[in-house]
C-alpha cells in the first residue's frame, strides 16, 4: 500500500522532533494507525496523568480530519464514555493545513481548558457547570485512578 508522502513526512517528524508531553507511534502493520500518549497539562486536574489515545488517518486524509479517541477513562465535558472527543478542528473546522501534531496539541490544550458549553458528555458538563469544584475533584480522582502509569494495567 503506497503511503502518501505527507504521512511519511509527518511520521518522520513526529519521531525525530517529538512534541514535549506528546508521543505518537505508528503500528507496524498499519502505518496510518498510531498509538498516542498525551501527558495531562500542569495546573489542570489532569496533571501527572498519562492518557492513551488511538489515532487513525483515513483514506482521504488530509482532506478529512484524522480519527482520534481516548482509550484511558477521563472525566471531561468534551470527552464521552467511549473516549470520543468533541473538538471543532476534528469536525467542521478541520483544515488540510492542520497536522497530527497540531491536532494532538489542540487536544492537550482542551484538557487544560474544558469547554462545558459545547459538551459531548452532558452529565459531566452539567456537574462542571453546577459545581466546578466537585467536577475538578472527580477529574483529579479519575486521573489518579485511571491515568497514573503504575495503575495502568490495561
Amino acid at each position: 500500500m503506497a503511503l502518501p508522502k505527507r504521512i511519511i513526512k509527518e511520521t518522520e517528524r513526529l519521531m525525530n522532533e517529538p512534541v514535549p508531553g506528546i508521543s505518537a507511534i505508528p503500528h507496524e502493520e498499519n502505518l496510518r494507525y498510531f498509538d498516542v500518549e498525551i501527558h495531562g497539562p500542569s495546573q489542570s486536574p489532569y496533571q501527572d496523568g498519562i492518557f492513551k489515545l488511538e489515532l487513525f488517518l483515513p483514506d482521504d486524509y488530509p482532506m478529512t480530519p484524522p480519527k482520534i479517541r481516548f482509550l484511558t477513562k477521563i472525566f471531561h465535558p468534551n470527552v464521552d464514555k467511549l473516549g470520543r472527543i468533541c473538538l471543532d478542528v476534528l469536525k467542521n473546522n478541520w483544515s488540510p493545513a492542520l497536522q497530527i501534531r497540531t491536532i494532538l496539541l489542540s487536544i492537550q490544550a482542551l484538557l487544560g481548558a474544558p469547554n462545558p458549553d459545547d459538551p459531548l458528555a452532558p452529565d459531566v458538563a452539567k456537574t462542571w457547570k453546577e459545581d466546578e469544584q466537585a467536577a475538578i475533584a472527580t477529574a483529579t480522582e479519575w486521573t489518579k485512578k485511571y491515568a497514573t502509569p503504575t495503575n495502568q494495567t490495561d
Binding site: 502518501p4 508522502k5 505527507r6 513526512k9 488540510p96 493545513a97
Partner: peptide
Amino acid sequence: PVDQALQCPICHT
C-alpha cells in the same frame, strides 16, 4: 531538501 516555503501546506511536498 526543498525549502519549506516551496512546499504545499496540504501535501507537504
